[in-house]
Design a protein around this nucleic acid. Structure first.
Length: 102
DNA sequence: AAGCTGACTCGCT
DNA sequence: GAGCGAGCCAGCT
């Protein structure tokens, strides 16, 4: 399967996220002028292999379902503190959320 | 063309 | 703070 144009946009943007910073699915979608965070997740699920998918987290800083452990390790390796909560591991968006345009 | 599914999000309890 | 339900968009069958 070839990446859809939307998926390519997602991968391209995710690739620009600096190490030590994170973005939410909603942020990625919004930066692409879209309102489909779910499509962002799908794109990373299918084609995220070559992109820093762990820098994309759910709203509230929650890690991607089914990839919490893997993402937590990679994030910690970049200096991002992963906090454990009942609903899953999460990062502090206030401190690590990436803002390239303010 | 119509319907189903999904690495989501927001509002309420 | 944590759990449940409805809403939205893009892709696939």
């Amino acid at each position: 399967m070839l990446p859809t144009p939307f998926a390519e946009q997602v991968l391209d943007l995710v690739a620009t996220i600096p190490a030590g910073r994170v973005l939410t699915y909603g942020d990625v979608a919004e930066r692409l002028g879209s309102r489909a965070p779910r499509a962002v997740g799908t794109a990373l699920a299918r084609f995220g292999g070559g992109a820093p998918w762990w820098r994309v987290v759910r709203a509230g800083g929650l890690l991607p379902p089914g990839h919490e452990v893997r993402a937590a390790e990679l994030l910690r390796a970049e200096g991002i503190a992963v906090i454990r909560s009942a609903n899953g591991p999460r990062v502090d968006l206030e401190n690590y959320r990436w803002r390239s345009a303010g």
